[in-house]
Amino acid sequence: GMDVRRLKVNELREELQRRGLDTRGLKAELAERLQAALSGPSSG
Rank of each mutant, 00 (worst) to 15 (best):
A36Q: 11
S42N: 13
D3P: 06
R13Y: 04
G44M: 12
G1N: 12
R13T: 03
G40F: 11
G20A: 03
V4C: 10
L38Y: 05
L21D: 01
L26D: 15
M2D: 07
E14T: 10
R24W: 08
V4H: 04
L12M: 05
A37T: 05
G1C: 14
R18M: 06
L30N: 00
L38D: 03
R18W: 04
N10E: 15
N10T: 13
E11T: 05
L7N: 02
D3H: 09
S43L: 12
S43I: 12
A36Y: 07
S43D: 13
E14K: 15
K27A: 08
D22T: 05
L12F: 01
V4P: 09
E29Q: 11
K8D: 15
E29R: 04
L12E: 00
L7V: 02
R19K: 04
L38R: 04
K27P: 08
G20L: 03
G1K: 12
P41E: 14
E29Y: 03
R24V: 07
R5T: 13
G1A: 14
L38W: 05
G1I: 15
R6G: 10
L38S: 04
V9L: 15
G44T: 13
G40D: 11
L16Q: 00
M2R: 10
Q17M: 10
G44K: 10
K27R: 12
A31C: 14
A36V: 08
E11F: 05
S42T: 13
S43E: 13
R24M: 07
E29S: 05
L30W: 02
S39A: 14
V9Q: 04
E15I: 07
E29M: 07
T23S: 08
L16V: 01
V9P: 05
M2A: 07
R13Q: 06
D3A: 08
D3K: 08
R18E: 04
E32F: 09
G40E: 10
N10D: 10
L34E: 00
K8T: 15
G1M: 14
E14C: 15
A36H: 09
G1W: 14
R33G: 00
A28E: 10
V4L: 08
E29L: 06
L26G: 15
Q35R: 13
L30E: 01
M2N: 07
S39I: 12
S39T: 12
K27H: 13
E14H: 12
R33S: 01
A31V: 15
E32R: 14
L21T: 01
A31M: 15
A31Y: 08
L21P: 00
E14M: 14
Q17S: 11
R13M: 06
P41N: 13
L30H: 00
G1Q: 14
L34Y: 03
D22W: 02
G25R: 02
A36S: 08
N10K: 15
R6T: 12
G25K: 02
R33I: 02
D22S: 14
L30F: 01
L30P: 00
R19V: 03
A36W: 08
G44S: 11
L16N: 01
Q17A: 15
D22E: 07
R18H: 05
E15Q: 09
S43A: 13
N10Q: 14
A36G: 06
L21S: 02
R5S: 15
R18D: 03
E32S: 10
A31D: 03
L21F: 04
S42Y: 09
K27D: 04
A31T: 07
L16H: 00
G44A: 14
G20S: 04
R5A: 14
N10C: 09
R24S: 13
L7Q: 03
R6K: 15
T23I: 09
E15S: 03
E14D: 10
G44P: 12
E29H: 06
L30V: 01
R13W: 04
L12A: 00
L30Q: 01
R6E: 10
R33K: 04
R18F: 04
A28T: 09
S42G: 13
E15K: 04
E32M: 12
A36L: 10
T23P: 09
L16E: 01
L12R: 00
A31Q: 14
S43T: 12
V9T: 08
Q35N: 08
G25I: 02
G44Y: 11
Q17V: 07
L38G: 03
L7D: 02
L16A: 02
T23M: 05
G44E: 11
S42W: 11
R24D: 07
S39V: 10
G20P: 01
A28M: 07
E15T: 02
E11A: 07
P41I: 13
K27M: 07
E32G: 08
L38T: 05
